[in-house]
Simulated scan of single mutants.
Amino acid sequence: MIRNVQLNSVAKHFGRVKALDDVSFEVGEGETVALVGHNGAGKTTLIKLMLGLSRPTSGSVAVLGQDPSAGNPAVRRRLGYLPENVSFNPVLTGREMLRFYVGLKSESRRSVDGLLDRVGLTHAADRRIGTYSKGMRQRLGLAQALIGTPRVLLLDEPTTGLDPELRQQFYRIVREMRDAGTTIILSSHALNELEGNATRVIILNEGKKIADGSLEELRRIARLPTVIRMRAADGGVQRIRDWMGNRPDLRQVNGHTIELDASPEGKVAFLRRAAGAEAPFDDVDMVPPGLDELYAHFLGGRPSA
């Protein structure tokens, strides 16, 4: 796999403040990596280093095989960036703004209409940006980031200001870019959005990398319980209790539903028993720990991944 982004023992200090401390990772083609952490964890500092806007105090950063701070024009043309708070000249129209950025990247003006269509702004292309809503400005920022089909796409809180439908549209574009081989690194506090959209998660805390892996890998390391939720018709809850041996860890949710927490081994044992016996429930759900729970687990001082 081609490694489009490589960080080796990166540290970044601002006086006595260690914004980043010995951070290393690589990201290859076709990966979508989520940077997760609280405010001040070092996410935006990492993005600035990858953009070449800042140099590390120690360690090395390579994007598309080059030091991004060297300002190689060929590398910059293959790099896309969407900041958390986009800011454009309010007197320009959306079309005029994109034409300006297309010119900076030496791309064809003919690509502008396609970009506007891709982010759903064709209807507002000739309106002044000062009349745009926050969500519209965010979509225009995404169009700017997509100029030239970047090989590396850096997104900082990209869905800020987008309604649920537009968030789905945004992640559809992200998946298309990933499937075409683009390396995507996004920073977000919306952890529920990242499940199913990020192939890998890097958790930062106080400038250190404390976890790195796919959701399944993080679940195996964390060993948090899976919630088994069983539902039965009227009067069936007691039958479930009897079938489970009236375990003290059973929790009754309502008159039809009962649940318990199960370790990975306990989940497998339950499934084997449910498949080989007259199970007294009409439906069962397995709810694995989500990214919110994994994030809280790794920030709680437990062993890191």
Rank of each mutant, 00 (worst) to 15 (best):
F25S: 12
F25Y: 13
V27W: 08
E29H: 13
E29C: 14
G30K: 15
E31A: 02
V33M: 15
A34I: 07
A34E: 09
A34S: 05
N39V: 02
N39C: 12
G40M: 08
T44S: 15
T45G: 02
L46E: 03
L46N: 03
I47C: 10
I47A: 11
K48P: 01
K48W: 06
L49V: 07
G52F: 04
R55W: 14
P56Q: 12
T57K: 12
S58M: 04
S58F: 05
G59P: 08
G59A: 10
G59Y: 09
V61I: 08
A62W: 01
Q66G: 08
Q66F: 03
D67L: 10
P68M: 03
P68A: 08
P68N: 04
G71F: 15
N72H: 15
A74M: 01
R77S: 05
R78E: 14
P83I: 08
P83W: 12
E84P: 06
V86Y: 11
S87L: 03
F88L: 06
F88Q: 07
N89L: 14
N89S: 13
N89K: 01
V91S: 15
V91C: 05
T93C: 03
R95C: 04
E96N: 06
E96H: 10
E96Q: 15
L98W: 05
L98N: 05
L98A: 04
L98C: 09
R99S: 04
R99K: 12
Y101A: 01
Y101R: 01
G103R: 15
L104E: 11
L104K: 05
K105W: 03
S106Y: 03
S108R: 13
R109T: 00
R109P: 11
G114W: 09
L115N: 11
V119L: 13
L121K: 08
L121P: 11
T122L: 14
H123Q: 11
A125L: 02
A125W: 06
R127G: 05
R127N: 13
R127P: 07
R128A: 14
R128M: 10
I129M: 02
G130Y: 13
G130M: 08
G130V: 10
T131L: 13
S133R: 05
S133G: 09
S133E: 07
K134S: 07
K134Y: 00
K134F: 09
G135W: 01
G135C: 05
M136Q: 15
R137T: 06
Q138R: 01
L140Q: 04
G141L: 09
G141F: 05
G141T: 10
L142E: 04
A145K: 03
L146R: 06
I147A: 03
G148V: 08
T149R: 14
P150H: 13
P150E: 11
R151C: 09
V152G: 05
L153G: 05
L154M: 11
L154V: 08
L154F: 15
D156M: 14
E157V: 07
P158T: 11
T159Q: 06
T159K: 04
T160I: 14
